[in-house]
Structure formats: structure tokens, C-alpha cells
Amino acid sequence: MTRTLANMIATVGGTGYLKPAPGTWGSAVAVLMALALHYLGGVTLLALATVVVFFVGWWATAQVTAGQDDHDPSEVVIDEVAGQWIALLVTSYGASRMGIDPLKLYPGWIAGFALFRLFDITKPNLIGWADRRGDALGVMLDDVIAGIYAAIGTAILAFLYHVVIL
């Protein structure tokens, strides 16, 4: 029972089994989930859910990968959810602060998605370090760091557009 629950969480209800590019599928589902969370409770709910998903994802990843040689199997995509949600917090915050429909800030959602995938795939500096840990915490941390990088990139792009260009 515990292993089945952990697998459902780690694969985000089976999303991790979609091919090709399960990480991209997991990130796409995470964007939809983030939008739903934003509509339900704004940036506060998204931020709280991100923290919960990190810890639950860490547990589920540890359960699923216990005794395996592969510490980060491709079907485990709960880490993408945590990282993607971090990347999207900037846009969710902007929509909450301005009191507007978050879809009006769709370029921010797209930028957060694209930048997160870029950093998650290329794994520069700290992201690569976390990935090389070889444990469940490393699986989660590399995506958290990629999410932070993507959030910073999204904020910079928003600043450039709203302050410099306009």
C-alpha cells in the first residue's frame, strides 16, 4: 500500500509514464495544477502547496527508488512539480498583487515553464551538484534550484518588459 501511494505521488498520478520526455509532461501538468491552485487561493496557496509537495515528493521519491541503482528514474516527476511551481510563483505573485486573472500574465507562465525546463535539462552549476548527490533529496533539490533560477529569470524578463520596454 505504501509503495503504491508513493508511486502515485512520485509519478504524479502516472504522468511520469507519458513518453517522450516525461519531465516535460510533468512540468506541463504542474503548470495546470499551479493555475488551479492560484484560482483557489492565490499565490499563498501555491507557495504552501509547493512546500508540501517538496516534502511529500522527497518521501515518495525515497520510497520508489529504495534499493534501485537508478536514483532518479524518468517516471519520477514530482520533483518537476515542486520546481515548476517555484518558477511560477513570480507570475502568481504578480497576478495576486495586481488583482487580475493570472491568465492575463500568460507570457510569465510560458517563461516560467520554458526557463524551468531549460535549467532542469542543462543542469548548470548548483543544479548539477544537487543532481549528482545520488539520493532522493538530490532528486528534489536539483528541480528546486532550477525553479529558483527560472523564477529569477522570469522576474528579470518581467522587469525588462514592464519597466524598461514599456
Rank of each mutant, 00 (worst) to 15 (best):
H71P: 11
S92V: 03
T2R: 08
A30T: 01
V76C: 08
G16Y: 05
I78V: 15
D143F: 01
L37M: 14
W25F: 13
V76S: 02
Q84S: 09
H38M: 08
R3M: 11
G128I: 07
I86A: 05
K104I: 14
A82M: 09
A34T: 13
P124W: 06
A6Y: 09
G13D: 14
G83F: 09
L105S: 09
D120M: 07
F119R: 03
Y149M: 02
D135F: 08
R132P: 07
V139W: 03
L166G: 11
A62E: 08
W59C: 06
L18Q: 05
F113W: 14
A30P: 06
L126R: 00
P102D: 15
L118C: 03
D143C: 05
M8R: 03
V164I: 14
V52K: 03
A146Y: 00
A130W: 11
G57I: 12
L157M: 11
I110G: 01
M8D: 08
I110A: 14
V77G: 02
I100L: 09
I121N: 08
Q63D: 12
A49C: 12
A47L: 12
M98N: 10
G16H: 04
A21M: 15
T15Y: 03
Y17R: 05
T91Y: 05
N125A: 10
A30Y: 05
A36N: 04
Q84G: 08
P124I: 07
A36T: 14
Q68K: 13
L18C: 05
I121L: 10
D69I: 02
A111D: 12
G83L: 02
T24R: 06
I127C: 02
I100H: 04
G67S: 08
L48T: 10
D131R: 05
G128S: 10
